[in-house]
Structure formats: C-alpha cells, structure tokens
Simulated scan of single mutants.
Amino acid sequence: MIKNFVCRLVGKTLYLLDEPTTVLHPQEVEKLLDILRTLVCKGNTVVVIEHNLDVICVSDTIIDFGPGEGLAGGEIVATGSPQEIIGNPNSLTGQCLRAYIAVNQ
C-alpha cells in the first residue's frame, strides 16, 4: 500500500521529516536512507531534521543551528556539505561528525 502511495507522489514533491530515525534499528535506518535516496533520484526534495550521524553523513547539505540548545540556540552556525561542516570550527555538529567518521572508517 505504501509503495503505491509513494509511486503516485514522485517528482517535484517536498518531503519534510522530523527525526524519522527515532527508535529505528540501524538496519531500519539503512532502509529509510534507501527510500530517501530513491525519492531524491526521482526529482523530489527531502528535508530531514535529524540528529542521527549516519543520516547527517550522507546528506547533500546541512544547516547547523546553534550555538547551543534552547535559548542559547536558534542561529545558523554553519551550512554546507558534511566535509564543509567538519571544517567549520564553530560547528558542534562538525566536531561530532569528525569524531564519528574517525571511529567508523
């Protein structure tokens, strides 16, 4: 049923997902990433609000908000590819990505 639903909505559609990996098993995260790649390859735009570093690592563009949380946040700290974010000294996400990639390579 879901497959038919997605097939009818491909191309020129904006998908906005808020923390879609919450409570997912790592294998389920991989399945989700495959689905998101398929949507993008078919001409759709996918915006994901996410803290999962597996998802952040494969993103085309990251918008990193901060510099802290709550009242200490809300500013755009960095934007760009994962590599650009890693190179930004103001980005806490970049620091986390750098450490994550070092451990998982």
Rank of each mutant, 00 (worst) to 15 (best):
R37I: 00
V77P: 02
I49T: 09
L17H: 06
P67R: 09
V23N: 14
F65L: 15
G43H: 08
E50K: 07
T38H: 01
Q27H: 14
A72S: 10
L53R: 04
D18I: 10
P82I: 09
K31W: 11
E30V: 12
V77Y: 08
G68A: 11
F65Q: 05
H51S: 07
V58W: 07
A78C: 10
T22K: 15
E19V: 13
G43V: 11
G68T: 11
S81C: 11
G68I: 13
V23L: 07
Q83E: 15
N44T: 07
V40L: 05
P67E: 12
L33K: 04
V58I: 14
E75R: 08
T38Q: 03
I76E: 15
T21D: 08
T61K: 14
D34G: 12
G66C: 13
L53H: 01
L32H: 03
C41P: 03
N44R: 06
H25I: 04
G66N: 06
T79V: 15
D54T: 06
T21M: 04
T38A: 04
T45M: 10
L17P: 02
T61D: 13
T21R: 02
V40S: 11
G73I: 13
P26G: 11
E30K: 14
G80Y: 08
T79W: 02
H51L: 08
V46A: 00
L17C: 10
P67H: 02
Q27M: 12
H51Q: 15
T21Y: 01
H25W: 10
V48Y: 07
V29S: 04
L36G: 00
E75V: 15
L33T: 07
G43N: 12
V48C: 03
A78T: 12
G80R: 10
G74K: 11
P20A: 08
E69Q: 11
I56G: 03
E28Q: 15
G66Q: 00
Q27D: 15
G66S: 11
I76V: 15
V40I: 13
D60N: 11
L36M: 03
P20V: 04
V48E: 04
V29G: 05
L32Q: 07
E50S: 07
D18W: 06
A78L: 11
A78K: 01
G80D: 05
A72E: 14
V40R: 04
V55F: 01
P20G: 03
T38D: 09
D34A: 14
I63S: 05
G70Q: 14
D34L: 05
L39Q: 06
G73V: 00
N52C: 09
L24S: 07
T61W: 06
L39P: 00
L24W: 10
D64P: 13
N44I: 00
E28L: 07
K42F: 05
V46P: 03
P67W: 10
H25M: 12
Q83H: 06
I49P: 05
T21S: 01
R37W: 09
T61F: 08
I63G: 00
F65A: 05
L39D: 03
E19H: 09
V77S: 06
I63E: 01
I76W: 12
T45S: 10
V55Y: 07
G66E: 05
G70E: 13
E50I: 03
P20M: 04
L39S: 00
V29C: 05
F65V: 09
T38F: 01
G68Q: 13
G74W: 02
D18C: 11
P67D: 03
Q83C: 06
E75M: 14
D64N: 14
P67F: 08
I49Y: 09
G66I: 09
G80L: 10
G74M: 02
